[in-house]
Design a protein around this nucleic acid. Sequence first.
RNA 1: GGAGACUUGUCCGAGUGGUCGAAGGAGCACGCCUGGAAAGUGUGUAUAGGGGUAACUCUAUCAAGGGUUCGAAUCCCUUAGUCUCCGCCA
Length: 423
Amino acid sequence: MLQINYIRQNAALVKEKLAIKHFSDVSVVDRLIQTDEQVRKLKTETENLQASINAASKEIGMFMGKGEKEKAEAMKQEVAQHKNNMQLMSQQLSAAETSLQDELVKLPNLPHTSVPLGKTPEDNVVVREGGVKPTLSANAVPHWDLIKKYDIVDFETGAKITGSGFPLYKGKGAKLQRALIQYFLDYNTDAGYTEYLPPLMVNEASAYGTGQLPDKEGQMYHATADNFFLIPTAEVPLTNIYRDEIIKETELPVKMTGYTPCFRREAGSFGSDVRGLNRVHQFDKVEIVQLVHPDNSYAVLDTMVAHVEKLLQSLELPYRILRLCGGDMSFASALTFDFEVYSAAQQKWLEVSSVSNFETFQTNRMKIRYKDGDNKTQLLHSLNGSSLALPRIVACLLENNQGEQGIALPNILHTYFGAASIH
RNA sequence: GGAGACUUGUCCGAGUGGUCGAAGGAGCACGCCUGGAAAGUGUGUAUAGGGGUAACUCUAUCAAGGGUUCGAAUCCCUUAGUCUCCGCCA
């Protein structure tokens, strides 16, 4: 959530930046500033009134103490008057505050200056490519055929148990998931991230904190009896660990990692995008999250990008890194790099990680702060990224490494998987 | 699921209607003491917001929300959480 003080002082700039994000109604900014003015005016008036009521109450207390009942009674009459006004005014105030908050929450984060202009995925900028695209033999097939051939993922039975998009991993397929999770977590903890195994359902306050609510509830599974949401990413529980906390500057940066299944309704998706493991409702992902000093969040973003890049290199997959354009970035992000791997049999780039700096957008909602040198409380910056999402990595490993002898796995996985190939 | 006890500041802990933002202690910070340290000792030590150039001042906050009252940490209601006992259960 943007800070109203910032909006008030930088109205023109805010409008400009919202336009880069293709936010439709820029006039909201003017309305916000108006409402804010009204709120502050009402607030001052209400508080002054409250102050005089408080003072009168104290006097009544003193009169009562001295036994001067008549004087006390007289004062009570006076206070009763004030209270009527008070009630009216505080109703107006809370109405104004509610509308301010409602509008404010709808504004997306402002894009960083390095964000490319553009509206669609085509406008994203390729930062660099790495790895080598394999040359497949003529009879190479996509992963949805390979998983059947080796009997490692069973979509039909998953659909029978739950519904479409809930894959059932089996045998070597299940073990490969376990190997990848274990490897990714080891890789992250070696880099200084603390491992967590968080709750997979969150309450409303948590979903609100990372920006899933109020607007995107349609993308989460909702357990209505208890009003819990199944997490769409570990980012939600991990970042919320520090909700309403003031972190000592000496404890920065906070680096967290965690494996969780992720649940996404993905309403409206269709076509070849959803074939096989390309897009599913439940998938495994290892996430990294950092809470850092505002001064170095962009340096940290670079280290996180390098961290994920090295991980992809170790898997020996062809990849590219994209700098997302204003129109393709998420609501809460100020700058995002997407990682895609090349799925050779589909001849398609598949997104496997998204690394973002949210600056103070999430921390403002969650009140995650630190004390600066002057002992002032300041908002931290939050960042996160996937490291990594599994299904498309698996799709790629299968497709790119298929051969007569089976699926040859990259060296790094041999020990984790307990074999060099799936056959 | 049933019954009960509880939830106060960074922590422990007092406070059952009137200068209580809250005693006392611990911790922490700074100073004194010391050759240095410990001990001792003095001072300070919440958060958010409004107004003010500032000193400062006002408002809110004793789990959360609502109510009673001129006045609530204190009384009432609702919700959440913790603990104990019973039931059920991996």
